[in-house]
């Protein structure tokens, strides 16, 4: 029986990292990011990484940690506004950046994982995003060809997982994690709760274990970027 369960994030990445590799990292903002695997990726010392992630973390947390150590060569993202070190490296030319519309990025990951080489979308037609890309008219409307994305490694975060690698996400922490889990040549998942195989409801599983090569239980800080609250009226 193959064992997918690893004792910690560091061992879960062993043998999966190499210079110049591409990594998909799940999460939206700091919500649902694989925080332990990002730290382990930093500690592995791997260099020249292309990171595919909707955002680039913040200074001092999430993918911001990998930017500080200059391990990222290129980012493929839709929005990177929350990170001063990112801006500094980008403006100085140290860091390459490819912007994808958020939906295009999500669909490129989904397509990549499903073996779909390319797809046509209306998103970005007539904009900088479509420059140099093939367009085609369907039913009188113009669409642009976007390609599926795969990465050497995907790192994802789920709420619950079992030893088979089946995953369940929680609330909006799902975001990019399910598609990225399918689009990595190798996929490592970290979970808050790791249970015995058979304890999850098979009808409730979001990511079937076939996509997950290794799984590790982590401890999570779950930092919040914008803590917005409703004040209680005084009784």
């Amino acid at each position: 029986m193959a064992n997918k369960v690893y004792p910690d994030a560091k061992s879960a990445l062993e043998g999966f990292t190499f210079e110049g590799m591409s990594v998909m990292s799940g999460g939206f903002g700091l919500c649902g990011i694989p925080e332990n695997l990002i730290i382990a990726l930093r500690d592995s010392g791997v260099q020249g990484v292309t990171v595919i992630s909707n955002n680039a973390g913040v200074d001092g947390w999430g993918l911001g940690l990998l930017l500080e150590t200059k391990q990222i060569k290129k980012m493929v993202s839709s929005y990177v506004g929350e990170n001063k070190e990112f801006a500094r490296q980008y403006l100085s030319g140290e860091l390459e950046l490819e912007f994808n519309p958020q939906g295009t990025l999500a669909e490129r990951c989904r397509a990549g994982g499903a073996g779909i080489a390319g797809f046509y979308t209306k998103t970005g037609v007539g904009t900088l995003v479509a420059e140099g890309k093939e367009t085609k008219v369907f039913n009188g409307e113009t669409f642009v060809l976007e390609t599926g994305l795969v990465a050497d490694l995907s790192i994802v975060k789920a709420w619950k997982g079992d030893k088979e690698g089946n995953l369940i996400y929680r609330k909006t922490a799902r975001n990019f994690n399910p598609m990225m889990a399918t689009a990595g040549k190798k996929c490592v998942a970290e979970v808050e709760i790791l249970v015995e195989t058979g304890e999850l409801d098979p009808d409730a599983i979001h990511t079937p274990g076939i996509y997950v090569d290794r799984i590790v239980k982590g401890d999570f800080e779950k930092r919040i970027e914008q803590r917005t609250i409703t004040k209680r009226e005084n009784a």
């Binding site: 999500a106 990951c109 919040i224």
Partner: peptide, 25 residues
């Protein structure tokens, strides 16, 4: 406040009875 429940502006929010969650794709 729940770190797993944010909107597109990354602000913490709440769910309603009719709420559903799904992937970004």
């Amino acid at each position: 406040v729940d770190a797993d429940l944010i909107n597109a502006g990354k602000q913490t929010i709440t769910a309603l009875k009719k709420t559903s969650y799904f992937s970004s794709s």
